[in-house]
């Protein structure tokens, strides 16, 4: 049976799915990137392989911030940006979706759709305030697990206002609010609300938000944020059980649609990949060139802004 592999390598987590020709999920995996995308993908492939029987991966799609690197390593047919991959993935689960909120580890985005077509999108531009990594660091500061954040937030009757425009200032404000005696659940609920306010005022600024709304990314697992979103926009917000896999799903679907097939072997989980960043040095621009090696042999290189820095495989 032909199967299609989609991999979404984010800053915090790495997600993978294997689909059959009918978009049924044959295997799925979700694990931490731990700052090592190649290692994470190796672990991912080993886990996916153990879930598969009799399926043959004929095409691979990658997305997420390490999509290019992992695309080279896996010989991907499609290397796609997160917005397109998420839109395609979400449409496969919710064909009538009009708005996608996505808050990941390092970035957040909004995608607007109309009759199955992306009509507008935006990503956070400069600051990561209000993303997943911000929430995890605040959880650590407050001494709770980030997984419990949402549940605790729901117990609050009176969320504390937190100035969350900027991560650093939010942290000072949070410390201040704790020092003057606000309760922990109120502060946590306030943080969830601040994430939503920040998102709506920055990423979603000027966009017409219409239901059905689907909320994805790691932060969507936080029921406190979900509740704050519903209160702010006045519509129900759908969080899918497979929401964290949407990017990978989209990548797999795009790989299938590309019609490009190439032999793929899970053996690459055992191969030795090395990456090396070198500074070009042929002019003052000092382009950082990334070279990828498999078992000591150069696979590909990129990052140069002119032909002087071309590295040939």
């Amino acid at each position: 049976m032909k199967a299609y592999l989609g991999i979404d390598i984010g800053s915090i987590s790495t997600k993978g799915v294997v689909l059959d020709g009918e978009k049924n999920i044959l295997a799925r995996e979700y694990l931490w990137t731990e700052g090592n995308p190649v290692g994470a993908v190796k672990r991912l492939l080993a886990a996916l392989r153990s879930q598969l029987t009799g399926a043959e991966v004929v095409s691979v799609g990658t997305t997420g911030s390490a999509r290019k690197l992992i695309g080279v390593i896996t010989g991907a047919a499609v290397v796609k940006n997160e917005i397109t991959a998420h839109a395609v993935g979400t449409l496969s689960l919710h064909p009538d979706v009009r708005t996608v909120f996505e808050i990941g580890g390092q970035d957040s985005k909004i995608i607007l759709l109309d009759q199955g077509v992306v009509t507008d999108y935006a990503m956070n531009t400069l600051c990561a305030a209000g993303t997943g990594s911000f929430l995890s660091s605040q959880a650590r500061r407050l001494g709770v697990e980030v997984e419990d954040f949402g549940r605790i937030a729901l117990t609050s009757q009176n969320p504390t206002p937190i100035a969350a425009r900027c991560t650093v200032f939010a942290e000072s404000d949070l410390v201040h609010k704790a020092q003057i005696g606000h309760s922990r659940e109120d502060i946590i609920a306030g943080l969830c609300k601040a994430v939503v306010t920040n998102y709506l005022n920055n990423v979603a600024k000027g966009k017409a938000i219409r239901p059905p709304i689907v909320f994805q990314g790691g932060v969507s697992k936080n029921v406190g944020v979900v509740r704050a979103f519903e209160q702010a926009v006045g519509h129900p917000v759908i969080v899918d059980e497979n929401g964290h896999l949407t990017g990978a799903l989209g990548a797999a679907i795009l790989a299938r649609r590309s019609g490009k097939e190439a032999p793929f072997s899970f053996e690459i989980a055992e191969a030795d990949f090395k990456t090396r960043g070198v500074n070009c040095g042929r002019c003052a621009n000092q382009c950082e060139i990334i070279c990828v090696y498999r078992d000591g042999k150069l696979l590909d290189a990129w990052g140069n802004r002119c032909e002087k820095g071309t590295v040939k495989a």
Binding site: I83, Q115, G116, V118, T119, M123
Partner: peptide, 19 residues
Amino acid sequence: GLSTRLEAFYDMVVMRKRA
């Protein structure tokens, strides 16, 4: 970040027009 945004913009334009 820039190439991600440009690529997504291109995909969107193509998708809108086809539809």
